[in-house]
Deep mutational scan, measured.
Amino acid sequence: MTEYKLVVVGAGGVGKSALTIQLIQNHFVDEYDPTIEDSYRKQVVIDGETCLLDILDTAGQEEYSAMRDQYMRTGEGFLCVFAINNTKSFEDIHHYREQIKRVKDSEDVPMVLVGNKCDLPSRTVDTKQAQDLARSYGIPFIETSAKTRQGVDDAFYTLVREIRKHKEKMSKDGKKKKKKSKTKCVIM
C-alpha cells in the first residue's frame, strides 16, 4: 500500500485542523484551538488504489514558523489553505509557496490551493482571484467548507493525484537520464 505524506499549511484560523478532522473523523470542530502540530493517518481508496494518507496539520501562528522547514522537508505534497473571508490569509499563500519551493529546492512541488469556509456569506476573496492565482502557479484550486464537508475529500484526493503525477514524471525523467548515460565512448 502506497503511503502519501501530505502537509496542510496556511495562516492561523483558516480551518486547516477543521478540514483535516472532517476528512479523518467526519465531524466539524467549530471551536478554535490553535494547533502546534498534529499528525493523522487514514486509509482510503483513490482511483481504485488503496493508500495510506499521513497528514500533518501544522501551526499557522507566526511564533511556530521555525518548525516549518522541518515538516516541509518531509512532506510530499501540500494543501495551501486560505479562508475566503480573510484576504490576508490569501496573500500569505505566496509566502508559504515560496518557502516550500526553497526548502524542497524545487520549482515543481505537488500543491493544491484550497479556499476554505465557502459556506460563509462574508467572502472577501473572489473565486476568480483564487483561480487566477492557482493557474499562475500551475496547481489545482478547490473551494471547501469544513463545516458542510463540501470539497473536503476532493481537496485531499486531488493532492494525492498531483503527487502521483509528480512521481510518474520524475521516474520518466530518471529513465531518460539513465538511457543517456548508457551511451559509451570508444577510443581507438
Rank of each mutant, 00 (worst) to 15 (best):
E3W: 03
K5R: 08
V7P: 00
V7S: 03
V8G: 00
V8M: 03
V9S: 01
G10D: 00
G10A: 02
G10V: 00
G10Q: 00
G12L: 04
G12F: 04
G12T: 06
K16E: 03
S17D: 01
L19Y: 06
I21Y: 14
I21K: 15
I24Q: 11
I24S: 14
Q25I: 01
F28N: 06
F28C: 11
D30M: 05
D30R: 10
P34L: 08
P34N: 13
P34H: 05
T35F: 06
I36D: 07
D38R: 07
S39N: 10
Y40Q: 14
Q43I: 06
V45H: 09
T50K: 07
L52M: 13
D54T: 13
I55K: 04
I55H: 06
L56V: 14
D57A: 06
T58F: 04
T58N: 08
A59W: 04
E62S: 09
E62H: 09
E63S: 09
E63M: 04
E63G: 10
Y64T: 14
S65T: 07
R68C: 07
Q70R: 09
M72E: 08
M72L: 11
T74C: 11
C80E: 01
V81M: 12
V81H: 01
A83R: 03
N85D: 11
K88Y: 08
K88A: 09
S89A: 07
F90R: 01
D92Y: 11
I93D: 02
I93P: 03
H94E: 14
H94R: 07
H95P: 02
R97A: 15
R97V: 15
E98C: 01
Q99S: 06
K101M: 13
R102F: 06
D105L: 03
S106T: 09
S106G: 12
D108V: 05
D108M: 04
M111D: 00
M111R: 00
G115Q: 04
C118T: 08
D119Y: 01
S122A: 10
S122K: 07
V125K: 10
V125R: 09
D126W: 06
Q129E: 12
Q129N: 11
A130T: 05
L133D: 04
A134F: 07
A134C: 06
R135W: 03
S136A: 08
S136M: 08
Y137W: 15
G138Q: 13
I139F: 08
P140G: 11
P140W: 01
K147G: 14
K147N: 07
T148C: 09
Q150M: 13
D153K: 14
D154F: 07
D154G: 07
F156A: 03
F156S: 02
Y157C: 14
T158F: 03
T158P: 01
T158E: 09
V160G: 02
E162K: 03
E162W: 02
H166Q: 08
K167T: 03
D173R: 02
K176I: 04
K177T: 11
K177N: 15
K180M: 12
T183D: 15
C185D: 15
V186G: 15
I187R: 15
M188K: 14
M188A: 15
M188I: 04
